[in-house]
Design a protein around this nucleic acid. Structure first.
Length: 630
RNA sequence: GCCGGUGUAGCUCAAUAGGCAGAGCAGCUGACUUGUAAUCAGCAGGUUGGCGGUUCGAGUCCGCCCGCCGGCUCCA
């Protein structure tokens, strides 16, 4: 009699059994949607070999959720094929928050069709169709999909080398699939179709475009509900909406991808940059500024002409060709080269809040997150080879300070290596890549490897911040560059009098100021911490009679360096409070007869509410307790 | 750039079936003189994104262009 084992070590004997039967021996079949046999996920009705370890996969685990969603994508594809016969199928995987299926329907689909498809999915769920795995010889599989006109599937099969190929069938629906899946369609209860979008077949823009139908599925109604609530929350936090409501910035039809910063948005940016400058001075950087437009020949020499031309804007001055800078490095190099540099000058840390223009394709623009003109908090470090590691560690420390200590953002690190269109020698790339790795290892930073994602002039370490709804944004980057110094013949005089070539480090911390502001808006849902709030305190006179006192208080606060305004309107106090709350002003000061008499203020904090009356000194103490990274 | 959707007052949204472009908020004017999340009244506000077409008649139907939204590809 075969023996089956549990991960805990327990064993049981039974006749040749399927995974579900083995789980039942231990009372573990409840809630399982698939099983793991010797660590490999399989269907519940898969036969288990003698001696195998069998564990349940629950829908509530990450692995189980993936299976549930993958099955949901099959369910959706089946519904689509029922409603729109002749639809050809692309691929339909589970993704981060749900699943999608790329389909090629005979007619175009609209949002209204989502409801219909959902309805049909509901019917298939009720049918409780068993989901069966088939393993058939290649030829047979090919003829099945030929017969069904599934040309995309045939293309996928061509790449599978195994003599046998697995398929999954539920009712009349058959799909090429590795599995595993839920045992029958009734397991998929809590799902929702979300959106439609175009997507190129196999992600290549030369291929035909299919319709990607997005949906999500969860094990319980509550978890589905909370996910949908989270989507709503994300909408509420959308920086484009808050940017308008809080009057921070706008993007006008006259400048697609070119944001306008309004006074309040600019205040936030300036506070942020004041902090940034202080921090950089502290860490031995000097600041420079280079021109926005430079002669085309410079860009040819730098390699941008060959590697980055499609993203650049060009112009002409006095009949000579010029380019608008898409990056700040060539300008920085010109400053470096403006005089002879000694090894004593290195490491030379040259920072620049550099405004760059890049031509982004119209479809990718997105509020402040993806624009055509942005300011990078750039820096170029000129270092000797044996300074590389320490300088990288120094930059990583700065990143950690700003992301972690100041903003409390979780972040991820990725190392990107040599891309296809790379410039320069392979050996230099290897040297550069291993220098970055060494720094990462020494600092003990966990990172993900992204082969082929480096810049054309060098490998890079990217820092991805995670925002409130789990999206990640690339902000900081450290790029190691042996190419530019070479191209521009950049040198320093070594101790022995010889001319040596420095290595160049390019780096940003915030990345793009625009994008960073967008992230901050969403992260704080517009309720900026006190130190960043465009208006820190709003003074609310109870009635006009107390305007003079309100002005007095305002003058005192301004003197303390607090960003203050007075609500001058002839409105009721409750109205003024409401408006200040909606503007997410951190502190409101109510001033009326009592306050004016005693030179006091009644303080209301936007989240805590009424804090009661206090003297101006008491207020000063209170404000001084607020977080301040300076 | 590509696919799909969408565009009405500063904002949010109405306008049966192709038949007089409207409301709330915001703004302005006036009244009210206000104590912890919306005082009342009046006024003003529009080339319905643009251009062309169909029609007796177009916000509505068709075509092209532009912007925006969601994706794809690409990226700070």
């Amino acid at each position: 009699m075969p023996v089956y084992r549990r991960s805990s070590g327990e064993t049981a004997e039974a006749e040749a059994a399927r995974a579900q039967d083995v789980l039942r021996l231990w009372g573990e079949e409840e809630g399982a949607i698939a099983a793991k046999v010797n660590g490999i996920p399989v269907d519940l009705n898969a036969f288990v070999p003698d001696g195998a370890v069998v564990e349940p996969i629950l829908a509530s685990t990450e692995e189980g959720l993936d299976i549930l969603r993958h099955s949901a994508s099959h369910l959706m594809a089946q519904a689509i094929k029922r409603l729109y016969p002749g639809t050809k199928l692309g691929i339909g995987p589970a993704v981060e928050d749900g699943f999608y299926y790329d389909v090629d329907p005979p007619q175009s689909l609209t949002e209204d069709d989502l409801q219909k498809i959902e309805g049909e999915m509901g019917r298939i769920v009720k049918e409780a169709l068993p989901v069966e795995r088939l393993e058939l010889p290649r030829d047979e599989v090919i003829s099945i999909f030929k017969e069904r006109g599934e040309t995309y599937k045939l293309e996928l099969i061509e790449e599978i080398e195994d003599p046998f190929i697995s398929l999954y069938r539920q009712g009349e629906f058959i799909d090429l699939c590795r599995g595993p899946h839920v045992p029958n369609t009734s397991y998929i209860r809590h799902f929702k179709l979300l959106s439609l979008a175009g997507a190129y077949w196999r992600g290549d823009e030369r291929n035909p475009m299919l319709v990607r139908v997005y949906g999500t599925a969860f094990p319980t109604a509550e978890s589905l509900r909370s996910y949908l609530d989270r989507l709503e929350e994300a909408k509420r936090r959308d920086h484009r909406k808050l940017g308008r409501e809080l009057d921070l910035f706008s993007i006008q039809p006259e400048g697609p991808g070119f944001p306008f910063f309004h006074p309040k948005g600019m205040t936030i940016v300036n506070v942020l940059l004041d902090f940034w400058r202080k921090e950089h001075v502290k860490r031995g950087y000097m600041e420079v500024r280079t021109p926005l437009i430079l002669e085309q020949s410079l860009w040819i020499r730098s390699g941008h002409w060959d590697h980055y031309r499609e993203n650049m804007y060009f112009t002409e001055i006095d009949g000579r060709p010029f380019a608008i800078k898409p990056m700040n490095c060539p300008g920085s190099i010109l400053i470096y080269k403006s005089q002879l540099r000694s090894y004593r000058d290195l490491p030379l840390r040259m920072a620049e809040l550099g405004t760059v223009h890049r031509h982004e394709r119209s479809g990718v623009l997105h509020g402040l997150m993806r624009v055509r003109c942005f300011t990078q908090d750039d820096a170029h470090l000129y270092v000797t080879e044996d300074q590389i590691k320490d300088e990288i560690l120094g930059i990583m420390d700065l990143m950690h300070h700003i992301y972690g200590d100041v903003f409390g953002f979780p972040y991820r690190v990725e190392l990107s290596t040599r891309p296809e269109n790379a410039m320069g020698e392979l050996s230099q790339w290897e040297m550069a890549e291993s220098a970055l790795k060494e720094a990462l290892d020494e600092s003990g930073t966990p990172y993900k490897l992204n082969p082929g994602d480096g810049a054309f002039y060098g490998p890079k370490i990217d820092f991805h911040l995670e925002d409130c709804i789990g999206r990640s944004w690339q902000c900081g980057t450290i790029q190691l560059d042996f190419q530019m110094p070479e191209k521009f013949d950049v040198t320093y005089v070594a101790a022995d009098g010889s001319h040596r070539r420095p290595v160049m480090l390019h780096r940003t911390v915030l990345g793009s100021i625009e994008r960073f502001l967008g992230i901050l808006i969403e992260h704080y849902a517009g309720a900026f911490p006190y130190w960043l709030a465009p208006v820190q305190v709003r003074i609310l006179p109870v009635k006009d009679d107390f305007l003079p006192y309100a002005r007095d208080v305002e003058a005192v606060l301004k003197d303390w360096g607090v960003r203050t305004e007075v609500d001058l309107r002839e409105e009721k106090l409750s109205r003024k409070i409401r408006d200040a709350q909606l503007q997410k002003v951190p502190y409101m000061l109510v001033v009326g007869a009592k306050e004016a008499e005693d030179r006091k203020v009644s303080v209301r904090e936007r989240a805590k509410g009424d804090l009661g009356e206090m003297s101006l000194e008491g207020l000063e103490d209170l404000l001084n307790q607020e977080f301040n990274p300076f």
